[in-house]
Simulated scan of single mutants.
Amino acid sequence: MYRLLIPIDDDEDRALRQARFVTDQPYDLSEAEAVLTHVMHGREKDAPKSMQHPGRVASVKRAREYLEDHGVEVTTVEASAPPEDGIIELVDEVDADHVVMGGRKRSPAGKAVFGSVTQTVILKSDVPVTVTG
């Protein structure tokens, strides 16, 4: 089983790009497992405990539906805050083979530098990290 950790923020289009990256790879999708994660913040953190699950976030739902429609096994877990530390912890916890981060649009000069969460995950991860566009 090839396990991909996919940290998803609130942007549905970015989440869909991350999911498409997974399904566009040359491996057998029935042998892939996507572990979706999301760090609860803001209003999400203020919701009743029973509603604080990453699977309830619209962007996570969209990625999950897309992946399942393409035959990928999907699980959802919550990452702890701060996001970069929570993601790095999950790499080991879920025994991830690959991390698929969602990149944000940046100015031409800003493209030389990743966002702080993405940059930290790239630098600290022991597994390959892909940043989708």
Rank of each mutant, 00 (worst) to 15 (best):
M1R: 07
Y2Q: 14
L4R: 11
P7K: 08
P7V: 08
D9Q: 05
D9E: 12
E12C: 08
R14L: 14
A15D: 08
R17E: 13
Q18D: 03
Q18C: 12
R20I: 01
R20V: 02
R20A: 08
F21S: 07
V22R: 00
T23Y: 05
T23K: 02
D24G: 15
Q25F: 03
Q25K: 10
P26D: 15
E33D: 06
A34N: 02
A34T: 02
H38E: 06
M40V: 03
M40R: 10
H41S: 13
E44D: 14
E44L: 13
S50R: 15
Q52E: 12
Q52A: 10
P54I: 04
P54R: 02
P54A: 11
P54S: 08
S59V: 02
R62D: 13
A63K: 04
Y66P: 07
L67N: 07
L67Q: 07
H70V: 01
G71H: 07
G71F: 07
V72C: 12
V74A: 09
S80Q: 14
P83D: 09
D85C: 00
G86I: 06
I87H: 01
L90Y: 03
V91R: 05
V91W: 01
D92Y: 10
D92R: 14
E93M: 12
E93P: 04
V94K: 09
D95C: 06
A96G: 08
A96H: 01
H98F: 13
V99P: 02
V99K: 02
G102Y: 00
G103K: 03
R106A: 14
G110A: 06
K111F: 01
A112M: 10
F114M: 12
F114H: 11
S116W: 01
T118H: 01
Q119S: 14
T120A: 14
T120Q: 08
V121N: 03
I122Q: 04
I122C: 09
K124H: 14
V127E: 01
P128Q: 04
T132V: 15
G133R: 15
